[in-house]
Design a protein around this nucleic acid. Structure first.
Lengths: 232, 232
DNA sequence: TGTACATCAGTGAACGCGCGTTCACTGATGTAC
DNA sequence: TGTACATCAGTGAACGCGCGTTCACTGATGTAC
């Protein structure tokens, strides 16, 4: 509990910045990220448009901050997941955290993982945050794989080319230089498959089909750690 | 070769409509779908803005037509895939067709499967087209499953809840009323996993990692039909 | 083949709107002596 | 504790811009006799 050296003025600044972002999210929820308007936010806050330029240099800076905040929030959610339990249990917990986070605010999810905005480039901060998340995921994957290497997705013949490629391209996993290829494969399958299920769910592609997305998601999570055995 | 009853004027109309759509796609590629502007398209065609209202009632109608065209194009691509070969071969061919189609024009892909536009609702036509595609996919899935039921993704214990749910919700698959649950599961995994890999690839989430998306995609396709065997 | 008429593509002016952003200014809040 | 000054939040007017859309109109193309 170190005494905050924040001046009242600085505190007020942060409050206003926070409120601007809140209104921004509301606006994104209503009309999409590309329709974000500084003037509209100001009006909603009972201020005049130019006032916001005290708090954000321009529209792009606001969006960048929203993106960074979204990444930060997801990374924190990941980091908060318990590291107790077996590898598969940890992976399941991470998956549940991911889905919970995404379902809680689909627009925030899509701001990160949705259609990229042409011309907009995410700031460098986010790659660092993405690495954080990958590190947490790899940790659980390594634990899961250590217990049962054959249970990793693609452990059969199908991933031989991928494994060869991964042998030469594992910079993205350099937080875990000793993780076996199966762990890397599992991490990739985790991201790829769960984002597939989540994207379709949040975009509403399942509602027209009358399916419960949670069950598909659960089945995909299960398949990540306990691959099908031949039942013939 | 039935003689076309199309009048020259009608033919001209269609030409212009087509050109408008082409410019629209170019504009989407450059600035995103939400920045689509009738005036800008007209200017690019050397016409004045209001002229386009001879061809499209308004902006929304143009977008709707772009969406429908995109679905139609994907469905045709699917339908053109050969039905020769074994089930797994057919699934692999469909997967390759999907990826080829998506990579050829990422913006078109995202217009269908990307971030949904708040307030915009796709027309009814597209659900019919989506059913077409699902029917083609289910056909291949049924063939693949018939040969080797245990090879379906989730054939282990992980998909029991999903199977129970599918037993009561298979209207989306009513083109194949006799398809076994494993076929339905395979079709869902096909869409979900491949869209996951494609979305991440096309949004550029792999480029920062230095990975070759094609190899991940290939591994996912392989996992759909030949699940890992325990190598322990 | 020629004339009279209908159809329809495209224009230019105009409407109201909201946007991002700049600028000079007012008034309140904090700081230094 | 009181006064003088500096800092900074917020305003209102203004700039230029592009948007979707409507409207009355011109001129070319096709049709009917």
């Amino acid at each position: 509990m170190t005494a905050s050296t924040t001046t009242p003025r600085e505190r007020y600044r942060q409050q206003v910045r926070t409120e601007v972002k809140e209104k921004a999210w509301q606006q994104i929820a209503g009309s999409g990220a590309s329709a974000l308007s500084l003037n509209a936010i100001a009006k909603q806050m009972g201020m005049s448009g130019p006032a916001l330029y005290r708090y954000f240099a321009n529209r792009d800076e606001l969006i960048t901050e929203l993106v960074t905040d979204a990444y930060r929030s997801l990374a924190d959610t990941f980091a908060a997941v318990t590291t107790d339990g077996t590898g598969p249990e940890r992976l399941a917990a991470l998956a549940a955290a991911l889905r919970g986070w995404a379902v809680a605010d689909p627009h925030r999810y899509f701001l990160i993982y949705g259609t990229p905005v042409p011309g907009y480039h995410a700031p460098d901060d986010v790659t660092a945050i993405a690495s954080e998340m990958m590190s947490v995921l790899l940790d659980a994957c390594a634990a899961a794989i250590g217990a049962e290497p054959g249970a990793a997705p693609g452990a059969g013949t199908g991933a031989r080319d991928l494994d060869a490629h991964l042998a030469g391209h594992r910079e993205w996993a350099d937080s875990h230089p000793d993780a076996p290829p199966a762990a890397l494969r599992t991490a990739l399958a985790f991201w790829s498959r769960l984002h597939g299920a989540l994207s379709l769910e949040l975009a509403g592609h399942f509602t027209g089909m009358g399916l419960d997305p949670a069950l598909l998601f659960a089945a995909e999570v299960a398949a990540l750690t306990s691959p099908p055995t031949m039942t013939k």
